[in-house]
Design a protein around this nucleic acid. Structure first.
Lengths: 335, 335
DNA sequence: TTGTAGGCGTTATCAG
DNA sequence: CTGATAACGCCTACAA
């Protein structure tokens, strides 16, 4: 494969000139540039980015680490990151971690190894390097999105999960429901704990309590929404609404209720959180709290870029707004 | 940041020994290795992968290029690729192209630029380098998945879309339907043309024809499934079943039919292709043709690895089997 | 078992 | 405006 030396030889100039022609076209004479361009075409020359990277100490690439790609939230988030990265000529590399430390660490090596300039993390785990970082040390080029650890000086962008969940609960309470069930997520995740707290908060504001016997723990999957709902129905305790910690479980709940011959929303109201793409098209369409997923990705990437310019000066936390979306899956309880 | 030289100095050995200790541990004395390990820990040394890459002419990474990540098919496919890559210590980098040549080419540069060893392409477009490749030239390190151009000597793995669609059509015909509608995809995509052909083939085998006035073109999205179905109903031509070129549009169709007060499957049967994750949980659960999405990813990655070993010897085409999955969205037409 | 040294392909500095 | 040259950090014959 042709390299810069071959081009220089063919164009009759030095390699320095070729390099300049490529990176700072203004600095070379038009005629020289033309000869170089000709040689490049002739030899089908492609710059070796690895060599450039080694010399410049910069890869023009960032890694997004996500636990799973089977997740509409992930998709929109990545889309947001791409939007901003693209304008900036930065490549975005997606890494899937399955929330396994070894996989995340393997990708984090790419940063230590200079193959990428930074990492945007949408996960509940973190690279072990970040974990053992001592307070006060200069922050790593990592932007946290949504899942976050307290007390780390990393830039982060997130929504207020407590408020979002509280809004969902308030909507249900406002419709007049009192026997209210809940499909929760894995409580190891901060997000799940926050949403759980939000549900309680929203209910309490209306003078209600979340009944412990109406809470079922799932894992945020469609499947677990179905199973949890069956479990709930089998307990035999009556309820007229289900607060779901995410849309996917809510969709599972709607499916399970239909299987058992219950009508949504007349018999049971269902509400989710996320406003994932499918939520508008379920039968019935899902009432939910919309999260600015794409905007989160965009802000995360901006934070990453700011961070590259000035690691200490970059903003440390951005919180984006959510919004209740009323559709067909909720209504007042029918006496 | 500490480099190999620092380690060598601290451990009192040469850099060659350090490098060996890292790459071929068998070749250094235990005691020396221990000193080196100690120094590595002490200085928190991380090998510079870019430098190694430059020297070894290998990046231990492959790129998967996909048009969109908003797509359950993509997710499972990527999962398959990861499964195999992981065993092999290869990093998988996902690139999203939106089927735009400029974006795909930007990522293809990473191969020419040695930042990645190859590319697995799940897209209908191809890098311009591949497009202008002359027949007979040695094949590029690119594995094609599903979408493919005829007459290119690239390794590829795919399903038989014609057969898959024919099976769906045969199922519908077998139930006794005769007025059969169809939601098609963008005919620029080979996959869409193949599935369309398959529908016709399956119907003809049963002595039926696809009525032109009952075909609506969509773009494979949920949204377009909804809209196309409304359009179909508004035409006023009666039908008792809809063949959908993919599950996502099928789910949209089910939603639209429900909105118009039609029952699935009693009034209209609906069948899709893909067996995406949500298909089992819609109301009613979707009858569809299951495609071995994850297996496609696994095979694609294997092909990539084989290709790295022997570009000319590697297998050129793998075709994987599909299977009809009967669920709740189809039944005989009700007189 | 270890050390020496050349080179991977660029970029950037400094003269000219 | 252009050229010579020293890095960038690592790997790998080859020699010892």
């Amino acid at each position: 494969m042709a390299n810069i030396k071959d081009i220089a030889a063919m164009a009759g100039v030095s390699i320095a000139t070729v390099s300049r022609a490529l990176r700072q076209p203004g600095l070379v004479k038009d005629k020289t540039a033309a000869k170089i361009e000709e040689a490049i075409r002739e030899l089908d020359y492609k710059p070796n980015l690895v060599a450039a990277s080694l010399r410049r100490q910069k890869a023009d690439a960032v890694i997004i680490a996500v636990p799973s790609i089977h997740n509409p939230f992930t998709s929109s988030f990545v889309e947001g990151v791409e939007n901003v990265a693209r304008e900036n000529g930065t490549k975005v590399l997606l890494a899937i971690t399955e929330s396994r430390s070894d996989l995340l660490d393997r990708h984090y090596e790419m940063i230590a190894g200079k193959q990428a300039d930074g990492m945007i993390l949408l996960d509940l785990i973190e690279p072990s390097d970040l974990a053992r970082k001592v307070a006060g040390a200069s922050p790593l080029p990592i932007v946290l999105a949504c899942e976050y650890q307290d007390g780390k000086d990393q830039p982060r962008v997130r929504v207020n999960d407590v408020d979002a969940a509280a809004d969902a609960a308030a909507h249900i309470a406002g419709l007049g429901h009192t026997r209210i069930a809940c499909l929760s997520g894995p409580s190891v995740q901060r997000m799940s704990r926050d949403r759980q707290r939000g549900f309680r908060l929203g209910l309490r504001r209306a003078g209600l309590e979340l009944a412990e016997d109406l809470i079922v723990a799932g894992d945020y999957s469609l499947q677990s929404g179905v199973e949890s709902t069956f479990a709930l129905l089998d307990r035999g305790h009556p309820f007229t609404a289900i607060l779901c910690e995410n849309d996917e479980m809510a969709l599972g709940a709607i499916h399970a209720l239909a299987v058992r011959g219950l009508r949504v929303p007349q018999d049971v109201s269902v509400i989710g959180i996320d406003n994932m793409r499918f939520a508008a098209f379920s039968n019935p369409a899902l009432t939910t709290v919309s999260l600015p997923t794409t905007a989160i990705g965009e802000q995360a990437m901006r934070l990453m870029l700011d961070f590259a310019i000035d690691a200490d000066g970059a903003c440390r936390e951005i919180i984006l707004p959510h919004q209740l979306i009323k559709r067909e899956s909720t209504c007042p309880p029918q006496a």
